[in-house]
Design a binder for these strands. Structure first.
Lengths: 197, 197
DNA sequence: GTAATACGCTACGGTAGCGTAGCATACTGG
DNA sequence: CCAGTATGCTACGCTACCGTAGCGTATTAC
């Protein structure tokens, strides 16, 4: 029917409720992980009645899935006109920036383990987290095929290397997630790949 | 009173029960995280009566803490006679090996997030995970002060770099956690540090 | 063999959370 | 102003899980 209906909820009451619920839900998830996201806790924290929550989400699993999504950063793909090396650096910057944002940063450990939870993963898209790193993977591939890093580079291994560095930094609350760090991560990665073996 | 009593349980019934419970508990934790470790589930999976479990562990939190510990790898410190670079490579090998072992490997995502859980972390020593990386940190420090990597290396940053690489590899079930990988991780790290900036 | 002890079993009481029903109230769009 | 609709509220029934009590049985050490 009308596609716009799901995007632009005309009734401001609906918009208000949804936003309040999701904000509270994210806050609870960040603070205490999936276990803290109970419908009753969300209701109390948001000021939205429990019954109203169930009018917008089929069950707790669907609410949790939306919460999970809301915690993930949006990593934009780099400008297609950029050279492979610059594009790689740009993606790393974007990733570091995204991972450094609240609530992503504090939710990160939970974001990693929640998809494995046999209860809480029920309605959770398994590839949402992987999707966050899609542009990084393609940037690595471009860098490899263009010779910025060795052509026989194992893309997945390189992904583990970069993502691991970024995530561990983000998990450490004392770590500044700025462009300096991003550039250093990219630099150490490229330098090691060029020299190593 | 007798210190030995807690270490050497003379009664084999006690030993049997404890081992059966912990084995089942670890299996449940690996499979479904802390949420799956319910006293009743452990009881059923182990064949040990619930009341017996409570005779050995004060409450669920203490059982979970032991389970958590049992999932962590033991990383031995490298031989003190080893040169800094060799020692670093050795620690990385040991870490990669330890993280590649079951049940550590599959439990890893849960091991990262559980300490942050306001419920399940109640009796969980916060530094147990960090302790696992203690020998790595000291190896990095030695490598830096001896000039294998730049002397002004940020130890914590280097730790994030190495631990992140290792953990992300371990989380990927398709990744072979062998000495080849360990050596490559160490090599890429050192090469990048020597050349980068 | 015998006393000590660990264990299994059943049955509790209590709590937290899920998801629903029904009805009254407040808000929104026209 | 009015009809439609979203919301709030109370009260449920249901399930899973925690932690305990009491008693009979089996295993162990001596």
């Amino acid at each position: 029917m009308r596609v716009s209906e799901s995007l632009v909820d005309v009734d401001p009451r609906v918009r208000r409720s949804r936003e309040a619920v999701l904000a509270a839900s994210v806050a609870l998830f960040v603070e205490g992980g999936p276990r803290a996201v109970t419908v009753e806790a969300v209701s109390e924290a948001s000021g939205v009645a429990k019954t109203t929550i169930y009018r917008h989400w089929r069950d707790r699993a669907h609410l949790l899935a939306d919460t999970y999504r809301a915690c993930l950063p949006v990593v934009e793909s780099p400008d297609g006109g950029l050279a492979p090396e610059a594009a790689l650096r740009e993606v790393v910057r974007s990733l570091v920036h995204g991972m450094g944002q609240q609530p992503t940063r504090r939710a990160l450990p939970h974001l990693i383990s929640t998809p494995l939870d046999p209860v809480d993963s029920s309605a959770l898209p398994a590839d949402v987290l992987a999707q966050t790193f899609a542009s990084l993977v393609s940037a690595i591939s471009r860098a490899a095929s263009s010779g910025v890093i060795p052509k026989d580079t194992d893309t997945m291994e390189a992904k583990h290397q970069l993502v691991g560095f970024i995530i561990m930094s983000a998990i450490d609350p004392t770590c500044a997630m700025d462009d300096d760090l991003a550039d250093r991560i990219a630099e150490l990665f490229i330098a090691g790949r060029q020299l190593g073996r």
